[in-house]
């Protein structure tokens, strides 16, 4: 039983770590601030949830589990608020997202970042 729990928690931690890395790669690859927010969103939600889930399985029923749940709760509650505030602040100073209208034309990875 303990072994099953261990394996489950390792899988969960590995998934979370992979999502964190993907989010980090996305932060650097995506072209402008608005699309980078999506990559940050991966780290903030799935990365945190899976890594903490893995730690939770290691912790068992203890104080540590409660604190881990509180960490997930706070991160999931605060991250959309700060992301939205960031997007709104960027728009309010005149930054416009880089938008592709055509659905079929392949996207060039142009570094057409929004202006400040």
């Amino acid at each position: 039983m303990a072994l099953v729990l261990d394996i489950l928690s390792w899988i969960s931690i590995l998934i979370g770590a992979a999502f964190c890395l993907i989010g980090g790669i996305g932060l650097l690859r995506l072209p402008d601030v608005f699309s980078r927010m999506h990559a940050a969103g991966i780290v903030d939600t799935v990365g945190v949830v899976f890594i903490v889930l893995g730690l939770l399985l290691q912790a068992g029923w203890s104080m540590a589990a409660i604190k881990l749940l509180l960490i997930v709760f706070f991160v999931l509650y605060t991250s959309p608020v700060s992301t939205h505030a960031l997007a709104q602040a960027a728009v309010s100073v005149g930054a416009r997202p880089w938008v592709v209208d055509e659905d079929d034309e392949p996207t060039e990875k142009g570094d057409e970042s929004s202006k400040t």
Binding site: V33, M37, A40, T83, L86, A95, S113, S114, K115
Partner: peptide
Amino acid sequence: TVYDRILAVNT
């Protein structure tokens, strides 16, 4: 932009 930096610091 400064917003990229804030996003990076938040992450």
